[in-house]
């Protein structure tokens, strides 16, 4: 009788233990997929930006003949970013350089009133601005997801399960530009 009860308790404990592991495992998988999905979002937007730049070049070419260097910098940065196949970190670097060249292109464009009146240019400017924002927000969401996933991975007993099932590591999409690191200015 006593032995029976003990076995029952043992079986129950084992079942609870297995269920617990399944739960933690599934939650980790869900978080991991969220990270992957978030990364895919960034890639969609990065691709969108690559596709927009040739249009932009076509539009500004006629107006900005004296700004060869600026235009070439954008084209080159785009090529480097597109061919960058490394991890999140090196990709982030290449993309930040591209953002920088675009920034200076739009700054220079301020000096060309004809260009600023061009409807096509204005539409492209809004399109690039929103893509730029979308990249930032996708990156922000990706980083939040990575942070969530990493925290979940590190706490006990999850870390044991992570060791057993070999969950992969993700790095954040970091910013290297010091200027970007600063908090947005608060005005009132």
């Amino acid at each position: 009788m006593g032995g029976n009860t003990l076995t029952l308790i043992g079986v129950a404990a084992a079942i609870i233990f297995i269920l617990l592991i399944i739960r933690i495992y599934n939650s980790l998988i869900a978080k991991k997929n969220q990270v992957k999905n978030a990364w895919a979002q960034i890639e969609v937007q990065l691709k969108r930006r690559y596709d927009l730049i040739p249009n932009l070049m076509e539009t500004v070419k006629g107006y900005m003949e004296h700004e060869r260097a600026t235009l070439e910098a954008v084209v080159k940065a785009r090529q480097i970013a597109m061919s960058s196949q490394g991890d999140a970190k090196s990709q982030a670097n290449a993309e930040n350089i591209l953002t920088g060249t675009l920034k200076s292109l739009f700054a220079v464009a301020e000096n060309y009133p004809d260009l600023k009146a061009n409807q096509n240019f204005l539409a492209l400017q809004e399109e690039l601005a929103t893509t730029e924002n979308k990249i930032s927000f996708a990156r922000q969401f990706y980083n939040d997801c990575v942070m969530n996933y990493n925290t979940e991975k590190e706490i006990f007993p999850n870390n044991v399960i992570v060791e057993v099932f070999r969950f992969e590591n993700f790095t954040m999409f970091e910013i290297t530009d010091n200027e970007e690191r600063q908090a947005p200015k608060v005005q009132f």
Binding site: T99, K103, F106, A129, E132, N133, S136, Q140, F173, E174
Partner: peptide, 10 residues
């Protein structure tokens, strides 16, 4: 981790 850097163009 990432402030709204965006604003590059906007």
């Amino acid at each position: 981790a990432v402030p709204l850097a965006a604003a590059a163009i906007s």
